[in-house]
């Protein structure tokens, strides 16, 4: 009887994404990578800049995906971690003269600590309550950055201007293109590390917590540790993205990191497919390009056009890009037969 066979080829259950369902097949990954490497050679600088931002937001969405898709915790405060990362890089570069590449691990570490610390009180909260707590963090962050107390370092409301790095080793390429490849290398490293993390013992612990916290703790998973750890890792990755963002945009200011950014990243995650790491780049593309397209269609109603497009997207594929990938995979498999 074919029932059993059908079960195997059918998409996995929706909410609980199994480990294997979190990544892309090897072939598809290589094609994607080749496109990302070769693409910019034929593109204009402005578009290369946009592709850099695509990767950076992709990283930030990925970070949220580790938190939500991996450990089942919800955050509307990712913009706060992004801001801390951005400011860390900017301050180190402009006040301490540190090389841009070296500021990124610092940004990541500081954000990891920040996220880990924030995860402690957040432990007692879940679902909507956690959403509110993280949301509060996102609301507070721009105000904190504006405080006179930090003004010497942060530049207050004015923000800080960041110098764009030149390509090293006398390479002849534009600054934008160098930054793109630099970002691509880092993104790739983090992506591979994240995939491995979720496949590791810790990743299994995250997922056990996501699927059933009580059962996970009964099996001996240190729920408190792994929940805060997930927050820390997510914040750390977001911090690196923030640092890269500061370098790419060449400017940090409190109002660049409002709740709107956190909400965008959340939308990106949903569009990409919660728990599907490769979807992060699709989600990132949505939040970067769709507002532009909306603006293009109608200036006065750009918000409404964006909303309609977002509705269309979630009506067509409620489970995000992952759903598209699964359908495509099944098609390919059918064709092969």
């Amino acid at each position: 009887m074919s029932a059993a066979e059908e079960v195997i080829t059918k998409a996995p259950a929706v909410e609980a994404v199994p480990k294997r369902g979190m990544t892309l097949g090897l072939g598809a990954s290589l094609v994607m990578l080749a496109a990302l490497i070769i693409g910019p050679l034929f593109l204009k600088n402005f578009i290369i800049f946009q592709m850099t931002m695509l990767l950076i937001y992709g990283l930030a969405v990925l970070a949220l995906n580790i938190l939500t898709g991996g450990s089942g915790q919800f955050s509307l405060g990712q913009s706060a971690f992004y801001a801390v990362g951005a400011y860390t890089s900017a301050i180190l570069m402009e006040h301490a003269g540190v090389n841009y590449a070296l500021t990124l691990p610092v940004a990541g570490l500081i954000c990891f600590g920040f996220g880990f610390a924030f995860g402690q009180p957040a432990l007692r909260l879940s679902g909507i309550y956690l959403a509110l707590a993280t949301f509060a963090l996102a609301v507070a962050m721009p105000q904190l950055l504006k405080l006179g107390f930090f003004e010497h370092w942060t530049g207050g409301v004015q923000g800080l201007v960041v110098t764009k790095p030149d390509p090293p080793f006398g390479l002849t390429m534009s600054q934008d293109m160098w930054l793109y490849y630099f970002t691509l290398a880092i993104s790739l490293g983090i992506y591979i590390a994240s995939v491995n993390l979720l496949r590791s013992r810790s990743g299994r612990a995250f997922m056990a917590i996501r699927d059933n916290e009580i059962a996970a703790s009964a099996m001996g998973v240190d729920v408190a540790l792994y929940k805060t750890l997930a927050f820390g890792v997510s914040a750390g990755v977001t911090g690196v993205a923030g640092g890269l963002g500061a370098i790419a945009v060449q400017f940090v200011a409190p109002d660049s990191y409002t709740v709107t950014l956190a909400i965008s990243l959340f939308v990106g995650m949903v569009i990409g497919g919660v728990g599907w790491l490769p979807g992060s780049i699709v989600g990132s593309a949505f939040i970067i390009f769709v507002p532009n397209i909306a603006e293009h269609i109608s200036k006065g109603l750009s918000g409404a056009v964006f909303g309609v497009l977002l509705f269309l997207a979630i009506f067509l594929v409620p489970h995000g890009a992952r759903q598209v990938a699964i359908v495509a995979e099944q098609l390919v498999r059918k064709l092969k037969k």
């Binding site: 929706v14 909410e15 959340f266 918000g303 909303g307 977002l310 979630i314 409620p318």
Partner: peptide, 15 residues
């Protein structure tokens, strides 16, 4: 999924 509904609220907000 729940999170998709939340995205729907955000879309409604924008509209």
């Amino acid at each position: 999924p729940v999170l998709t509904n939340v995205a729907g609220f955000i879309a409604l907000f924008a509209i």
